[in-house]
Write a protein that binds this DNA or RNA. Structure first.
Length: 180
DNA sequence: TGAATGATCACG
DNA sequence: GTGATCATTCAT
């Protein structure tokens, strides 16, 4: 079980995004394997929250890599990102979907009736009880409750497409996922 | 296809 | 302050 270090996250967001596929995200008593992500870069990416510069919300993206960036959207949902790249380069990887591994009963309880526990950015934050107050800007390289580790699993075929739910930056195929 | 639902942002 | 927007989800 190799816990991912700062060095892993300190690279181009697109590379980190691809390499995060198959890794295991741990948040408290729950965990799941990452199977869908999106990369968001800073000044060169009009779809990124960081495109227009630093604000109160996107501040974590301008900080050190290996931190959570959690934001609240559509008045109802949280989304989870991992900050990447060196120092002040404001990039991040959005975790869009995970496959539940442990703490499934807890996640079931939090999500209610729906069988699809964690197959969407808003859903997985509900299942893992991720919110801005507790998790935003958390250093996942130095935390014992929240971190990502490599258990040796390698996705067979990684696919890519345009990112979901955005109007700008559709030409970049920075959504990455795998089926098996 | 559209309603839910409120933080966030740019503007002034 | 104000109005538009929004890296979503769920029920029609």
């Amino acid at each position: 079980m190799q816990k991912l270090s700062r060095k892993f996250f300190d690279r181009c967001a697109v590379e980190v995004a691809k390499d995060l596929l198959g890794k295991v995200l741990v948040v408290g008593d729950c965990s799941g394997r990452i199977n869908e992500v999106e990369a968001y870069k800073g000044s060169e990416d009009p779809a990124s929250h960081a495109y227009l510069g630093i604000t109160e919300r996107n501040k974590p993206m301008f900080g050190k890599s290996g931190h959570f960036y959690v934001y609240f959207t559509y008045g109802m949902y949280h989304c989870l990102n991992i900050v990447t790249e060196i120092d002040k380069s404001p990039s991040a990887v959005l975790i869009r979907s995970i496959i539940p591994l442990s703490g499934i009963d807890i996640m079931q309880k939090r999500r209610g009736k729906d069988n699809n526990l964690t197959n969407g950015p808003g859903k997985l934050c509900i299942a893992l009880d991720i919110n801005k107050k507790k998790h935003n800007n958390l250093d996942i390289c130095k935390n014992n409750d929240c971190y990502i580790y490599d258990d040796g699993f390698l996705p067979k075929h990684i696919k890519s497409s345009s990112r979901i739910g955005i109007k700008k930056g559709l030409e970049q195929k920075w959504r990455f996922f795998y089926d098996e």
